[in-house]
Structure formats: C-alpha cells, structure tokens
Design a protein around this nucleic acid. Structure first.
Lengths: 338, 338
DNA sequence: GACTCTTTTGAAAGCGCTGTCAATTCAGTA
DNA sequence: TACTGAATTGACAGCGCTTTCAAAAGAGTC
C-alpha cells in the first residue's frame, strides 16, 4: 500500500513530527536522528503526499500555462520553454488552452477557484477589454504573456514587436531599397499585428513613403488564406522594390508559393518576409528573411517571473520585453545565407 | 478569504455533511434543502478544494502526459488532442517531457509517488528494455503511446506504422514504378523507424527488388542532417524510378532542398516522400507525398483510454491502432494536388 | 397512541501532512 | 548535586473535505 509519514516514523523510531522536520527544516533535528530518518525514507521509498501537503501549506506547487490555442510550433515552443523552467523551479505544469467551448474566464476560475494552482501564466494576444477586471478578481499571481497590464500588480513578458518590425522594415527600406510594402497581418484585434503594422507604417513614413490602406490585409495567420489571397493579388503586387511583409512565416510561405505558382520569381519579382522564425522559415525556397521571436524563452521567462513572485509576493511588477532578432535570408533579395 | 464548505453550510443553515452530500450524492438530500444549499453555493461562488478532496478520495482528477520531447508540431498536436479530451472528461492535464537531465523513470516516480496524478499516458518511441518492469512498478493506470506492452495490463495507442509504410511503398512501387528506394530514417532504436524500414523492404521484396543496406541511413529526424546527407549523396541517388523515403516530413524537406540546390528536379530526377503530414508537407515545393499520422487523435485517444480505465479498472487491456492515411502530392511524380 | 420503517440530517473520525507548544534531554555552570 | 538555558523531540490541533454511524424526523400501520 501507499507509504505514509507514519510508516517512516515507525521504522525510524521517531514521531511523525520529527520526520516532517527532516523533510522541511532539517537543521532542527539532531544529525544522528536525521540520518536514521533519511535511511528509513530511502528504505521505504517514501514521498510526501502532495495533497496532504497542499492542504496544510495552501500551496500546490503546480502552475498553469493558459494559451489561446495549442496549435503549431509557436505555441509548442512556448510550452517547451515553460515546461523546462517549471521543472527547474520545482513546479509541475498544467497546460490549458481556452480552445473550444470554454472561455478563458471560467478556465481561470476553475484552475484557481479550486486552488489547484499556485499561480499561472496567461497568454493574451487579443485585445481584451476587461482584462484588467478579469485578472483583478484573482488573488494568485498571474503573469501575462504578450500583453501588458498596467496595474502595477501583474508581471508580464512581451516580445518587443515594435523593435522587431522596425528592424525588419528598416532593413527593407534602407538596405533593400523597398518602395512599397504590402502588409499581410493577422486579425485586426491581434495586438502583435497592430504593433507591427504601425512600426511598418512609421518606417515607410520616415523614408517619405507610405503604407497604403489598400496594401493592408488582415487574415488569420494560416498558410491557406495567404496562399489564396496572394493567388489573386501577386501579379498586382509584383514590382521592383516591392515587398510583402507577412505577420508570420506560414503566411509568408503561402505568399511565396502563390507567387511562384504565378510564375513570379521571389525575390526578384516580389520579395517576401515573414515573422517568428519558425522551422519552416529556413525551409522555404528561397529561405525566408524573418524576425526571430524567442518563443521558448518567452515560456521560460514567464514561469520564471511567476516563481519569483510566488517566492516574494511583494516584488514590484516587472515587464520583461524580449528583443526579437532580424534574420536575413534570401527571400528579401541578395543576402547572406544563414 | 477562501470560502470553504463550512461557510456554505452556515449560510444554508445545514451541517457540512449535508453540503458535501449535495455535492456528491445529491439524491440523498431533501429537495428543499438541496435548493437552499445550491443557492448558498452560488451566492458564495464556492468551489471544493481539490486538495482536501484529493486527500479524502485518493484521487486528484489530474492526468499526466509524458513525452520524450515537446519540440515541433508532432508533439504539439498530441498535446492538443490530449488537452481537449482531458477537459472533456473533467480532468486536468499535466505535461511533462523527459527532455533534459530527468530520466523517464524518476519523472514517473515523482508524478505518481506523490500521488499527484490519477494516471498517465507515456509516449515511448525508443526501444526500451525494461519498459515492462518499469511500468509494472506503478499501480496507477498507464497508457502507452507508440509502443505496445504485451502484459495484458496496459492499454496502448499506436500508429499502424506498418500499414502506413506499406501503403506508401506499394504506391511507389506499383503506381510509380519505383526501382530503388533510399531510406532515410530516424535512429535505429526508434521503433517507428524500424517498422517502416521493414515494411519498405518487404514491399520491395514483393516486387523482386531489394532495399540495399547502402541505401539505408539513420539520422535524427532533423531537417539539417538530412540536408547535409543528401547534399553529399543526391547525385548518386538520382535516377529514373529512384525514390527517397524519409521517415518524417522535415527530413524529406531537407532532401528536396538539397536535391534542388544540386540542380536536380524533384520528382523528375529524384522523387521524395515523407511521413507524418505535418504542415510543412503541403508547403514544400513540390508538395510532399506523405502519410498522414493522426497526431491529435493519438493524444485524445490516449486520454480517453486512460479515463475509461480510471472509471473501470477491471477493463481488459486494449490496444488502439490508428490507421495512417496515404496522402499523394507531387513530390513522388505526377499526382493529384491536395 | 404506540410501533415500525424510511427518509433526512448532523456529529465526528480520519485522509497525510505541518506547525505550535510543551515536555524531555543534554550541556554547561555554580 | 542542583540549576539553567539550549537543543531536541513528541503530542496534538487543524487544513477542507468525505463518509460512517447514529439520531431525529416523517410516514405508514395496527
């Protein structure tokens, strides 16, 4: 049967208090006894029951990562980083996606209300009105991914979308002589998309150019929709110094394929750049110039912040901004191969 | 502060036993009282504490999914399926990868020994001696993914690698007139790889051909290594009726790119096929003929089996074998576009 | 009205652990 | 030897819940 603290106590000939002490405050127990207890623990292969422990300490040593979706490499890298970091910090990781019928609010309520988790990291990539209010309801530490909550309470980790997009667009304009940029973004409600769009417009502005509203498209981050859209438009998009800036690598890939299918040459007739630097970025032909988003680092940083706050609830709220990195490959014209 | 069952009891003017009863065995309590209690629960937004509950019931309502790695689309789809199914079944999902220093044994021991989880699904893609013995140590239900444990105790869900590889290779030989197949697999210890290799050899045998040991390579499922290998060999591989069978889409993509870089035309000079049907399969040029592995279904089936066993521990062990599906695209010669 | 049987309820034990508090032991000192 | 304070230990309450058991309340019968 399951071995409990009482079994250990009996075997080591001490009281359960002593066993508990060697588990939690070893310095309080005599060395001789401690060794006996430790031996007994080893003999019986004893592990404290998380539930009893959680009940007493009001801590579960479980943290949750809540994502809008678990589809694709972007999320899986976040999970990966979070997972490694959680283990490092001695926490278990529960993954939840608000995909499907469940809405985020009730998901959080479930996780927290039943005090399953000590804290959580939530990715919020959509403009969410009332996010403030939603988060304020909960007492446990919550780290926000991809959005900033300016309440001095919640930590957050974001990608500096602006910096990434600026670097990318400046490269296009300054090093590649871009004359026109066609922006193929995600939904208008997606905060990453809006940040990138704005940065792009800004850079064009600096150069005395402008981003035409007609050159701004909002899709859903999928290959297919980009392929379809580009299929209809590439002929018109093509031209010397014309660039398509797709908001992720998949859509960029869709655009490249559509262009190629239409008999155009990328980058000569139309240059294309992406965002994220997922694995496919290096696999497209030509390889994709893109912006590397440190996805797994994002996950691990989120968990790290969470654990820090768990350790010290008084810490002032911090926002970690991760800088993406411009990766120049061949899809934007002659460039070094990575 | 946290609201407990006592608060509900007080508000509804009953004892905690009664509250507990409406929570667990509603039929035992008078309708009038029940309504009063339910109202109180709603008023206070009460949710039972999982730890107290877990302590009493010896159940956590948490299941774990243990993967060898969380990298890439393959795993993320499994997670996705598992996640959705777990929620559907009223369980929480803990994700763990044995990536990094931790070995699988101690990971399981940690999860189970502390009775954190009611059961788990473990993916075992490497030939593991002693898997039997390892699993036998644990009392909680364990579902094995990607391997079969013939002990009449453990459920498993596998992909019928053989059927998939047979279908693919037969297509190559019978419909495409393959004369020679170059097999680019994963590690020799990888069970999927060996199953596919054998099926491939068999089909060639049926046709009076043979799979030369010189045409058998074992890599690590990565794009890069396939790209490098193919870079050195494609010239020699090329030829009428010659096919490269890569054990996953990424490696297939690496081969295609290397071939293209070497000035060859795929599929005219060398045909290439992959396995898995991950998203990149449709994005390669030419699009990849491959075998669709129902990844997310694999995850969800595993959790489903697990929950069934949790509900009825006496059930006899079942092994669900998911049939992959041949997806013919253009990389193996003239074919329908998907 | 007294009795039995059923339905409904509450008191209390206990799940495995931590932490408080008091008891015990052990040095060190007078 | 007696006395003190520090080090070490054990008894026990209690975390929030479920469940047994017995008591109380209704319902039905003679």
């Amino acid at each position: 049967m399951r071995v409990s603290i009482a079994d250990v106590a009996k075997r080591a000939n001490v009281s359960i208090s002593t066993v508990s002490r060697v588990l939690n405050r070893r310095e309080l127990v005599n060395e001789k006894t401690r060794e006996r207890v430790e031996q007994a623990i080893r003999d019986l292969d004893y592990r404290p029951n998380v539930f009893a422990r959680g009940l007493m300490l009001q801590r579960s040593e479980i943290v949750a990562l809540v994502l809008p979706d678990v589809h694709g490499e972007f999320y899986s890298e976040i999970i990966r980083g979070a997972n490694i970091q959680a283990r490092e910090q001695g926490y278990h990781l529960v993954i939840s996606s608000s995909e499907g019928p469940t809405d985020m609010g009730s998901l959080l309520e479930d996780l927290i209300g039943r005090s399953l988790v000590d804290g959580l990291a939530v990715m919020v990539s959509e403009q969410t009105k009332g996010l403030h209010r939603l988060l304020a309801k909960f007492r446990v530490p919550i780290v926000v991914l991809d959005s900033v909550v300016e309440d001095g309470v919640h930590d957050s980790v974001v990608i500096d979308q602006r910096a990434g997009a600026l670097a990318l667009c400046r490269h296009l304009v300054q090093a590649r002589g871009a004359k026109r940029i066609i922006f193929v973004g995600g939904p208008t409600t997606n905060t990453d998309t809006t940040a990138r769009l704005q940065a792009c417009a800004e850079v064009l502005g600096e150069a005395g150019l402008r981003l035409s509203p007609d050159d701004t498209y909002h899709l859903d981050f999928q290959y297919d929709s980009a392929f379809v859209l580009a299929g209809e438009r590439v002929k018109e998009w093509a031209g010397e110094g014309h660039f398509v800036f797709a908001a992720n690598d998949e859509m960029a890939c869709g655009v490249i394929d559509a262009a190629t299918a239409a008999g155009l040459h990328v980058p000569q007739d139309l240059a294309v750049v992406g965002f994220d630097d997922t694995r496919i970025a290096a696999m497209t032909r030509p390889p994709l110039t893109t912006v590397r988003v440190p996805m797994s680092q994002m996950g691990s940083t989120a968990i790290e912040l969470l654990c820090q706050r768990l350790a010290d609830p008084q810490r002032s709220a911090t926002c970690v901004s991760l800088r993406p990195e411009l990766i120049v490959r061949e899809s934007c014209g002659e460039g070094q191969r990575d």
